[in-house]
């Protein structure tokens, strides 16, 4: 064995040892999730609808959408999420809608109830309806990351800018944190 091979072999051994040490210390001292797939989710109880979800996502149109937790909805005629404040006529006219893209659809069910549905193609996650619903109504509208759109980035660029740190990685089983209760922060998982 000449000098060159010796240096080469010992260098390789040292680097391999370093890798083994690094991996070992991560596997044995840290948490490694083997099966676990983690996905980004918004905690609706922490969310304050600042509107950054619509601008900070790496996608041109955010992967966050408004989600309606129907079981909390009061089906109000005067919906705080649908109508602008001080609206005179409770109809589907564009001038009375709070949603800037018209993504929230209102449908008559029976007197005096109306169903509100989100057209996700139009929703840009500005959170105006969520804020409106939360301040005057039941708070059945919420923002949530949609996994058909989310790229599951290594680091969520919205989470970085979220003022209340409402976005975190959750195990895939706990995905879709949708409001199910008003007080109990334990969220339902509608799966």
């Amino acid at each position: 064995m000449n000098r060159k091979t010796f240096i080469n072999n010992s260098g390789r051994l040292i680097l391999l040892g370093g890798l083994v040490y690094l991996t070992g210390s991560i596997i044995f001292k840290r948490k490694v999730s083997a099966s676990g797939k983690y996905v980004w989710q918004i905690d609706p109880f922490k969310c304050m609808q600042c509107g950054r979800c619509s601008t900070q996502c790496v996608r041109e149109i955010s992967a966050v959408k408004c989600v309606h937790a129907y079981q909390l909805c009061g089906y109000c005629d005067l919906c705080g999420g649908y109508f602008k404040p001080n609206t005179h006529k409770l109809n589907t006219g564009a001038e009375s809608q709070l949603c800037p893209t018209g993504a929230l659809k209102r449908k008559y069910v029976e007197e005096p109830f109306f169903e509100y549905k989100i057209d996700e193609k139009l929703c840009n996650a500005c959170g105006k309806c969520v804020k409106g619903c939360g301040s005057f109504g039941n708070g059945s509208l919420q923002l949530q990351i949609r996994h058909d759109l989310c790229q599951n980035c290594n680091e969520c660029s919205i989470a970085r800018m979220c003022p209340t740190n409402a976005i975190s990685r959750v195990p895939i089983e706990a995905a879709y944190q949708i409001k199910g209760d008003f007080k109990n922060p334990a969220l339902t998982n509608p799966k």
Binding site: Y70, F113, E115, R146, H147, D148, N152, I172, Y176, I178
Partner: peptide, 12 residues
Amino acid sequence: YTQPTPTTPEPR
């Protein structure tokens, strides 16, 4: 009237 449930598109 049946109350709809929120849709939850699956991740990969």
